[in-house]
Write a protein that binds this DNA or RNA. Structure first.
Lengths: 241, 241
DNA sequence: GGGTGAAGGATTGTTGAACAATCCGTCAAT
DNA sequence: ATTGACGGATTGTTCAACAATCCTTCACCC
């Protein structure tokens, strides 16, 4: 790396700080509000009200809405306004379909790349560190009785599994998918119990991954996804009626 | 289905026609221009010029740009404007990583669902029809010497394979991925030869799928993706330097 | 009571003007 | 060759305005 290369890196890095547009910042604020459940599915976001509350113009707010639309957190209804997305049972099923493809695919891909390049095995503990951290985070939260944090850790676990693919696009897709799933959990009666039941399974999957039994881990993951989907569809269908 | 149900469907269907926003329509026009190669990677899209050319205001155009951003066709550079995305070799590699996960995952998922629900086998020829149509489209185009259409058909083939997952989100992700790939092909010297070499492989994959040899099809697909990636990375690295 | 149509208010979608901030290219001075 | 200043172009945002649309309410009729 030459001097101009790292200077360029530094410049780019600095330019990423404090250079977000107002539209981008507004989108961040709204995204957080939505994924944390303050703005519930079905809520209508009035340009006038939100613009006044956040102190931005309607045009800027509209740009922010467009930014959030692609994350499927908002839905634009032409001439009727913008709403926090209300997911259907079919949405839930599709989300699990995609999770199987992304998460199981990520594990399979890393197994294939290990076969092709044995030097990956030497870095495997490092690659697994975020998965391990998420499992420990969940167990720690459960021991403290912090059920919200258990759910958060469970999502970190699954994000970390998808990150094993080492693909920016897979990581981003999983990030959006988990954000959408949060909309589902906000509608559920007892999301905490949902997540907490899967802690031992996460630990088992981690140990399989650590032991190099990637096929076993993938099977465990698939079994988890099947069970979680069935449970969630049942709870969601009941709660959304 | 009751009367009110199909009336509602009809109303929704009618309401989807001619109810696109101007921002949405502008995004469509720009998307087509980009994916067809008229707006080349690296091109800067001046709000003033594009707005004047399309007869829309800058604010509307900015919304359209935000709509296209999430498809990775455009890249916003703060205070510098909006550019048609120029992909790197790492982008190409990541695209193929995601393709493996999506396309092979789709085939695997449909195999798993067939195991779980044998009635799918009765509908399999229907489900395979778009894949078959794309293969025939490609062979027809090649016999006429229409190499651009061969490339288009090849993309239809891969889109149809991903569609086997019967997941709206997978379909959309694949759609975006293929749009991005078009940006790669526009920079290549001879993209036609690239696509045409894979026609026999597509036919073989189709026949494997039709014969129910889903594992064989998945292997053929993975082999294609490995070969195509290597070839494309080599061509792209040479052409982009 | 139920159905229909009209009116009015609220809101959305879009346009255009304006201005501050930023970027980039050019030119002059060292 | 390097640095700094300047000017022009452009972006990002705000504001005001207006047409179009939607939704609610009310009046009228059967």
């Amino acid at each position: 790396m030459t001097t101009t290369d790292w200077l360029e890196d530094l410049r780019r890095e600095r330019s990423d700080l404090g250079r977000a547009s107002t539209a981008g910042r507004v989108a961040d604020v709204l995204r957080t509000r939505i994924t944390e459940g303050h703005l519930r599915p079905g809520t209508r976001l009035s340009e006038e009200d939100i613009g006044a509350a956040l102190g931005v113009s309607r045009n800027t707010l509209r740009e922010a809405f467009r930014l959030l639309g692609h994350e499927r957190l908002l839905v634009h209804e032409f001439n009727r306004g913008v709403f926090v997305r209300r997911l259907t049972v079919d949405d839930v099923r599709d989300l699990y379909q995609v999770r199987r493809i992304l998460e199981c695919g990520a594990v399979r891909r890393v197994a294939e790349r290990m076969d092709a390049d044995p030097s990956i095995a030497g870095r495997w503990p490092d690659l697994l560190a975020p998965v391990r951290a998420a499992v420990e985070e969940g167990e720690s939260a459960a021991s403290r009785g912090e059920w919200v944090d258990v759910g958060t850790a469970n999502m970190h676990f699954h994000q970390a599994v998808a990150d094993l693919a080492q693909s920016p696009r897979v990581t981003e897709a999983m990030d959006h998918l988990l954000a959408e799933l949060r909309l589902v959990f906000h509608v559920m009666d007892a999301p905490q119990a949902f997540h907490e039941a899967y802690l031992p399974g996460n630990r088992a999957i981690l140990e399989q991954l650590a032991a190099g039994d990637l096929a076993g881990a993938e099977s465990g993951l698939a079994a988890y996804l099947d069970t979680a989907e069935a449970q969630l569809v049942e709870a969601y269908a009941a709660g959304a009626a």
